[in-house]
């Protein structure tokens, strides 16, 4: 951007050519980026609805979960299940897997819930004394809720990433559209103008030279004619000339 900035570049055919190439590149990039932005925006709009829906589902799921947990408290009659559950936590049976998804060249993380049943033995032995069935029902309710939450997390990260990406792409599109391309066009306009001016100057100069030459030639011719004429007029008169010396025989 050094030469596109303050001072003007030298106006000749070669710089014009380079700027033409740059304009071509900029226009192409602008079109591509615009397409990318539109694709991202379309995806983004679809995402918004999903987020709201999933958020509602999560709320619903957790409400059910809380209710189920209350039932479990009631069923286990006096045992403090909360603290024993918290004490028993060791290795997670629910983990998430993250992998990238590609939207218009932007990689977006997607989460997937993985369930490892071999780790669930700890939880399954809960409530053997009393309320085991209710407890496992509670667990299922919460499993469903967690599934929704994981889905929501995917959507939310996608939302964040896309939001950021759209902002960036828009900035680039606008920079190209309103700054870079006009600037290149202005420089090209300047160069062509300057070159036209030069051509006109050159033409005028040649014309002037030819004119001058013509005048000079004409003058020379005239002078020659005049010289001839005067030469003819100034021929010495035989009568007015000095007397010849007497002839002495």
């Amino acid at each position: 951007m050094s030469q596109a900035g303050g001072q003007r570049p030298p106006a000749n055919r070669m710089t014009l050519q380079t700027f033409k190439a740059r304009l071509g590149g900029a226009t192409k990039g602008f079109k591509l980026l615009k397409k990318k932005r539109d694709a991202l925006k379309a995806r983004f709009q679809a995402l918004l609805k999903d987020i709201v829906d999933t958020k509602l589902k999560v709320g619903e799921g957790l409400k059910e979960g809380a209710f189920a947990l209350a039932k479990a408290h009631y069923a286990s009659s006096g045992d403090d299940i909360a603290s024993s559950i918290i004490e028993r936590a060791k290795k997670p049976s629910l983990t998430t897997k993250m992998y990238p998804d590609n939207v218009a060249g932007v990689s977006i993380p997607v989460f997937k819930m993985l369930r490892d049943s071999s780790q669930e033995a700890v939880a399954q032995t809960m409530g053997v004394g009393s309320g085991g069935a209710v407890l496992s029902a509670t667990r299922d309710t919460y499993l469903k809720a967690v599934e929704c939450i994981v889905q929501l997390a995917s959507l939310q990260t996608a939302f964040h990433t896309l939001d950021e990406e759209i902002k960036m792409t828009s900035r680039r599109v606008n920079a190209l559209e309103y700054v870079l391309i006009p600037r290149i066009e202005e420089i090209m306009h300047y160069i062509t103008q300057e070159m036209d001016e030069e051509a006109r100057e050159e033409f005028f100069r040649v014309k002037k030279v030819v004119e001058k030459k013509k005048i000079k030639l004409a003058k020379e011719k005239e002078a020659m004619m005049l010289a001839d004429a005067t030469a003819a007029i100034d021929a010495p008169s035989m009568l007015q000339s000095k007397k010849d010396a007497d002839l002495v025989f």
Partner: peptide
Amino acid sequence: MKIGLIGDEDTVTGMLLAGVG
């Protein structure tokens, strides 16, 4: 990857029951 959790006792209990702990 694990799931981090900050919340009141009941919420945490439920989540741990599901197996995120």
